[in-house]
Amino acid sequence: MSDIVLHVENLHSYYGHIHALKGISVDVKKGEIVTLIGTNGAGKSTTLRTISGVLRPKRGTVTLKGQNITGMRPHEVAALGVSHVPEGRRIFPQLTVMENLDMGAWNVSDKKLIETRKEEVFTLFPRLRERINQLGGTLSGGEQQMLAIGRALMTRPEVLLLDEPSMGLAPVLVELIFDIIQKINKEQGTTILLVEQNALMALEIATRGYVLQTGEIVMNNDAKVLLKDERVRKAYLGEE
């Protein structure tokens, strides 16, 4: 039990009258990559939003390292070591690359540490270093994704929530992003909860996976098992 970093239990979330999550329970252990897969509208993003505090659940609890964080505001959750890279990158378009990274380090007060972290990000994404004074909005989609991940790493989060990091990227970049997700997980020991449309690749790098369908978890198992599961292969890996 003690190695469970993030514990989500029986979560119910609504958008107005839309019942988007109908009792979701997810556990993420320290150092794991756990993936949430499912069709469009299944509630994957909603799950992440509820964990990070953007959305308040009607019922259920979110526990971080034994502390109940249900209903906390996003900045309070962030201060506890959770970084959420939402769907669609959400780079600040009118801030430069450098300023975007600085925003990622909002909770870091040590200036030297911020510089070191920036260097780490530039080592992961050398492309960003050349663009430090460019406005975020003028970056290409792939560069924005790199910046979004880099920005989330500025605080050295304990838990990283990634929402479709491969969306809209060229295959070569998708591979790079997945490599880097693994690298962050291995080298920095970051626990990762990964939402992906690209279920095959997600399951390949994940320890465990959860399958969501219309707001409910219909399957949950080791990633290797899910990869071999008939229903998963049919529904999410595009096999007939």
Partner: peptide, 18 residues
């Protein structure tokens, strides 16, 4: 920088700890 970030994207600013 925080004010400019909030002006551009409130939700994202919150997620970053603002």
């Amino acid at each position: 920088r925080g004010i400019r970030a909030v002006a551009q994207d409130q939700t994202m600013s919150g997620l970053l700890g603002v």
